[in-house]
């Protein structure tokens, strides 16, 4: 494949995704509203991701604390571990790692589900059954992913910090109350609010990319697998790009 073809394919993909996103914004405000399917998707996307997100968040907080400790001890500032860990988790590591795990679990499952529905003509069947499949499948899943990721990030941040408290107590003794006092004292709105806002964008990226890849899945089972895989890859890249933009925008908005 020549460089020209690769660039053209990439631009085509970006154009198609932009059109798909524009259609989402057109359809989202238009009745009929699929409330029950949206609620079901919130349960599937949010509640059923909780165990995986919780486990990884706990391990993340614990490992981060244990990795950080030797350096902090060397400089005699181990008392600052709760402050450092909390800022790192709340501002960056919690949202990004949770979003990446979310992309792996939810992005791939949406891509595969919609892809197999496309291949087996279920999306067409939905359309002839008097249902707008874009609204029923894409709008509900994208909205649910957009709203559920921030909730999961808040929970994962809290679980990570509990993991961190256990990490601290492996070597030292620090009460939970004192740990949380240090965490809260060192966190500012500047740390929490931009991090929470960017989670909505991460969730939206995971939802819309998963739906886009699945909705336009090519024929055959190979296409379904490729949709699931490319949904994760593309969503992960978008998460990093959005993170880069978020930090720039936060700097601009907060300081100027």
């Amino acid at each position: 494949m020549s460089d020209y073809s690769i660039n053209k394919a990439l631009l085509d993909e970006i154009g198609d995704l932009a059109r798909f996103t524009a259609r989402f914004f057109r359809e989202v405000f238009r009745p009929r509203y699929e409330f029950s399917e949206f609620a079901h998707q919130c349960f599937v996307i949010g509640y059923k991701s909780l165990a995986l997100v919780g486990l990884t968040a706990f391990i993340l907080g614990l490992v981060l604390t244990m990795q950080l400790r030797p350096s902090m001890v060397r400089y005699g500032v181990e008392a600052q571990i709760p402050a450092m860990v909390s800022i790192a988790i709340v501002r960056e590591i919690g949202p990004v790692i949770t979003a990446l795990i979310f992309a792996g679990k939810i992005g791939s499952s949406i891509g595969a589900e919609l892809g197999s529905m496309r291949v087996t003509e279920q999306i067409d069947a939905m359309e002839v059954s008097g249902t707008n499949p874009f609204k029923y499948l894409v709008v509900t899943r994208t909205l649910a992913a957009t709203l559920m990721l921030p909730v999961l990030v808040v929970l994962s941040d809290a679980i990570s910090l509990y993991g961190s408290w256990i990490g601290v107590n492996i070597y030292d003794v620090l009460s939970l109350k004192l740990f949380w006092t240090q965490v809260i004292e060192n966190l500012a709105y500047y740390d929490a609010i931009p991090a929470l806002i960017k989670c909505f964008f991460f969730g939206f990226a995971v939802g819309i990319v998963g739906c886009y890849k699945g909705y336009y899945s090519k024929k055959g089972t190979e296409g379904v697998g490729r949709s699931a895989n490319s949904a994760v890859v593309m969503a992960s890249v978008f998460i990093f790009i959005l993170d880069l933009l978020a930090v720039q925008i936060t700097e601009l908005v907060w300081y100027y």
Binding site: S116, T120, A125, G130
Partner: peptide, 27 residues
């Protein structure tokens, strides 16, 4: 106008009852 798909296009995640109720509830 009913349409019988070549691949049947039954919704995998729904029971037979839910599959049959789906077009009814929509139309």
């Amino acid at each position: 106008v009913g349409f019988l798909f070549q691949s049947n296009a039954l919704y995998d995640s729904m029971t037979v009852r839910e599959n049959l109720e789906f077009p009814l509830r929509r139309h």
